[in-house]
Design a protein around this nucleic acid. Structure first.
Lengths: 341, 341
DNA sequence: CTGTTAGCGCTTTCAG
DNA sequence: CTGAAAGCGCTAACAG
C-alpha cells in the first residue's frame, strides 16, 4: 500500500469521488460493480480507490441498502466439539455465499438465554441460524415477527421466514433398545444431564422409556442424573462400578460423557462390551479415539451446520423450496456394544 | 409482546417519537440512558418503546456514533478443539463487555488467508483478536493502519493499536528434550504437519532441533511429516510400527494427532511409555480421555482467549497498560512418558 | 454513461 | 430538560 498507510482517519467515498474527479454515484457504481460505467471511468476510479486505500463501510452500506450481508449464528455457550463442528459447517457456507457471521452465544440459564433474541434483533443481521435448545418457540416466533428469517436446527418448525432441520434420533433410539433386549436382558440406563440439556435430550428420555414399556421392559429402564463433564462422570462411575455391579446398557447424550463411563469401566476392570455396554447419541472424534471405540448415533454435525446455513441463504433470497429438512441418524456400531450373533 | 407482533416493517425511532409525543433527540436520550431526561418523560418514552416493540438499529447507531460495539475474531477454518476453547473464552468475555462478535474464518491457503484483512476492515468492527498463524505481520500492520485495534495471539508484537499474547512453548520444549536425554537415548521425532501449520510450530521444530544439537544429540533428532488428521496419522503409524521398530520419543503438535500415534502403538502391541513415548504440545480433553493419558504442554486456551479479548477491550477503551502478556506453558506429566526415577 | 439529491435510522451539537 | 437540524457513509431513483 501507499503512503496513506499511516492515515489517521479512514477514507470515505467522498474523498474517492473528489480525488478521482467523479461523482459519488459513479464511485458507488464501481464499488457495486454496476455495469453502466465506462471501462475507462471504472479503471480510473479503481485506481484512486487503490491509491487512497479506500474500503467501503459495510455499516453505511447496510444502512443505505437495508441489508447487511451479515447472518447471525446462535449457539450455546458451552462449545462442545459437535457444536464446533456445526459452527465450522455454518461459517464455511456463509463465507461461500459472501455473508459475514455474527456469533451469539446464549447463556446456560434459560431466562437469560432468551435475551439473545433482543440482541439478534437489534444487530441488524439479515437472518439467523439457531442451534439452541434453550430457546422457546416463542423466541423464534419473535425473531420471525421482526422480519428476521430463521433456520432452526433440532426442531420441527415451520412458518413464514422459518426453515428447520429436525434431528431425528427417535427411530434409531427405539431400534437400539429393541435390539438390545433381543440380545440381552441387562437394564437400560439413560444418562441425563442435570443442567437443562434442553428439549431434544429430554424428549429422547421419554422415547426410550416408552419403548422399554412398549416391549414390556419398563422395569428395566432407569434414568441416571449426571453432570455435564467428562471428569465428573468418570468419578461418578468409578464409584458406581466400585463393586463391579450396576452392569447394563448405558445411553449417553454425548461421547465425551460416554468416555467417562468407558474409562471408569476400564479402570474398574470391567469388560466393555461384555459386562457394560455404552452408546452415545452424539458422536465426535472422541468416539473414534477412545478404546474401546464407541458406538454412536451418526449425524454429521458439520453437514447439519452447512445445510442449515444454506437453507438460510435460500430463505434470504426467497428461493427456498423445502422448508423442513430432517436429518435421520443411523447407527455406527463400534466396540462399546455387543455385536449381533 | 403486543399486537404489533405481526408488523411488516420494523419500527423506527421516528415512530416512537411521534407516538410518545417527544422528539427524536429525547427518545435517543432515553435509549442511551442519558441522565438529562425527566423520570416522567423517560417512563413515557419507555412505555411506548415497549408498546411498539421498538429495537434500535445497531447499524444506524454505528453509523451515527462511529463505533459499533462489534469486535472481530479471526481464527483458522479448521476448528480444532483448542480453537473452540479459545473461541469460548473470547465470546464469553466479549459478552460481558457488551460486544457482539463477528467471526472471520481464514482459508487454509496463505494467499487467501490475507483476504480476511480486507473483510475485517470493511466490516466496521471496533477491534479484532487474531489467532491465525497464516497471517503475516504486514497483514496485522495493515489492520492497525486502518485504525483497527488488534490483539494477536501467539506472537510477540507491539505497536500503536496492537496488543499481543505470545505463547511460550520454547523453554518447556527445551527442558523436555533435555530431560528426555537424561533418562534415555531414544531418538526424538518431531511430528510436523505438511500443510502449513504456520509460524509457531515451525519455529518449535527449530527450537527442538537446536536443543538436540546443543546437547550433542543432533543425530538423534528427526522430523516426520504427518497429515493433519487423527485417522491418517493413526494409519501412518500403524505402518511405521508394523515391525515393532521406530521406537522413540515423539513430539506432536496437537493431542488429537498424538492420539493417532498412541492408538497405533497400542494396536501394534507396543508399550507406551516403555517403548514409545509421546508428548503433545497442545492439549485438550483428548489428552485426558485417551489411554494411556497424554503428557502435554499445558496452556489453558480458554484462558488465552479470554485474556486476549479482555486486552482488546482495554485497548478499545484506551486503558491497556501492558501490551504484551505472554503465556508460558508448563508440563503436565501423564502416562505417555516415563517418569523420572 | 454520469451527476444531483434524497434518504437509510440514529446521535449530537446547539439553541431555547 | 427538550427540540431542531446537521450529519455519519453510502445507495438509489431521477434527471440529464
Amino acid at each position: 500500500m501507499s503512503q496513506e498507510d499511516y492515515m489517521k482517519k479512514r477514507v470515505t467515498i467522498y474523498q474517492v469521488a473528489r480525488e478521482s474527479g467523479y461523482s459519488l454515484a459513479t464511485v458507488s457504481r464501481v464499488i457495486n460493480n454496476k455495469d453502466n460505467v465506462t471501462e475507462e471511468t471504472k479503471r480510473k476510479v479503481l485506481e484512486t480507490i487503490e491509491r487512497l486505500g479506500y474500503k467501503p463501510s459495510a455499516i453505511a452500506q447496510g444502512l443505505a441498502k437495508s441489508f447487511t450481508t451479515n447472518v447471525g449464528i446462535v449457539i450455546p455457550s458451552a462449545m462442545y466439539s459437535y457444536v464446533a463442528n456445526m459452527l465450522s459447517g455454518m461459517t464455511d457456507i456463509a463465507k461461500i455465499y459472501g455473508y459475514r457471521t455474527t456469533l451469539f452465544v446464549t447463556s446456560p440459564i434459560q431466562e437469560q438465554a432468551s435475551e439473545v433474541v433482543e440482541r439478534v434483533i437489534s444487530s441488524n443481521v439479515d437472518g439467523v441460524v439457531i442451534f439452541d435448545d434453550q430457546l422457546t418457540e416463542a423466541d423464534i416466533a419473535k425473531l420471525a415477527s421482526y422480519q428476521v428469517p430463521v433456520a432452526v436446527i433440532g426442531r420441527d418448525l415451520t412458518g413464514e421466514n422459518v426453515a428447520s432441520i429436525p434431528l431425528k434420533y427417535e427411530e434409531t433410539l427405539r431400534e437400539t433398545i429393541r435390539m438390545h433386549f433381543e440380545r440381552g436382558q441387562e437394564k437400560v440406563v439413560f444418562l441425563k444431564m442435570t443442567d437443562g440439556n434442553g428439549a431434544l435430550m429430554n424428549s429422547l428420555v421419554d422415547v426410550a422409556k416408552n419403548e422399554c414399556e412398549k416391549i414390556g421392559k419398563g422395569d428395566l429402564f432407569e434414568v441416571l442424573d449426571i453432570q455435564d463433564s467428562y471428569t465428573k462422570t468418570y468419578q461418578q462411575f468409578l464409584d458406581i462400578f466400585k463393586n463391579r455391579n450396576n452392569f447394563g446398557f448405558y445411553i449417553s447424550p454425548r461421547d465425551s460423557i460416554a468416555c467417562g463411563v468407558l474409562n471408569a469401566a476400564r479402570d474398574s476392570n470391567i469388560n466393555v462390551p461384555e459386562e457394560v455396554q455404552i452408546i452415545s447419541i452424539i458422536g465426535t472424534k472422541y468416539s473414534q479415539i477412545v478404546r474401546p471405540s464407541l458406538t454412536i448415533f451418526d449425524v454429521d454435525m458439520y453437514e447439519v451446520g452447512s445445510i442449515a446455513m444454506r437453507m438460510l441463504t435460500k430463505l434470504l433470497s426467497k428461493s427456498l423450496q423445502t422448508r423442513v429438512y430432517p436429518f435421520y441418524s443411523s447407527i455406527i456400531e463400534r466396540n462399546s456394544t455387543r455385536k449381533a450373533k
